[in-house]
Amino acid sequence: MKKFFQVVGFSLFAIVAFALFANYGIPKINPAPPPVEEKVDLGAMTIESFIALGDRIFNGKGTCTLCHNAVGGRAPMLDSVAAKAGERVSDARYKGTATDSEGYIYESMVEPSAFVVVGFGKSGTNDTVSPMPNVSTGSIGLSDVELKAVVAYLQDKAGSDVTVEIPTEAPADEEQEEGAERVVAKTAEEVIENYGCTMCHKIAAGEGDMGPDLTKIGAAKSREYLRRAILDPNANIAVGFDPDMMPGDFGDQMAASELELLVKYMADSK
């Protein structure tokens, strides 16, 4: 019996020693509580408070500083990104569609691979693919308003003029269960339905004839062409159709994932 208690005592001693070390041997850190989805009152916002919102998102919910910090070297610093946007969008390696710093920063968050700063690409991809996730989806899940606030913050941080306008009101379909978060379509059919493409085009189940027939468009046009045709409809006008017919603001309305779903859908329509 004596041995039994010795063994039990020894085991308890070891366990308590580990517990003591874990409690007192290392610095105490309180993990940050889970992020709270903030409700934004856009009406009462000044540009300063909008920038401050971007600051909070950048340093908090957006988890941007996990990688974009001065210590780790995992991602480029963003303090002058607004100033550099001009040269980036005219870079030969640039694959996106933005023309100004606002568009560039926004795009870099929803489509990070559009431009990868040299040295920060995924290993083995020769800086063509970014390791950064699309921050409008997944666990970070920034809404359009939040993304714009981050753009405003980054522009201000770089000392450029803040060109972002505070969204006056959240689009109607955004006022769903979680504050300003909108429901993003999951399938191309939903996208087509939501944005009313079938009113004019022959696509999916639609039979519109005011715009070009898109049922076989993938055989003739590249994805880049299709993406531009949605974002900037007047860039190329199909023979027999008039310019300025199609709304030019789908780029603002659609989530990047929706745009990509749609482009993929059309590109695969052969």
């Binding site: 610093m77 000392g159 450029s160």
Partner: peptide, 20 residues
């Protein structure tokens, strides 16, 4: 961090300086 990265511009003396 001892030498943090500077901003690209600075507001001081009521003016804006482009630090670049």
């Amino acid at each position: 961090s001892i030498h943090p990265a500077p901003p690209s511009s600075l507001k001081a003396f009521g003016k804006r300086y482009d630090l670049m």
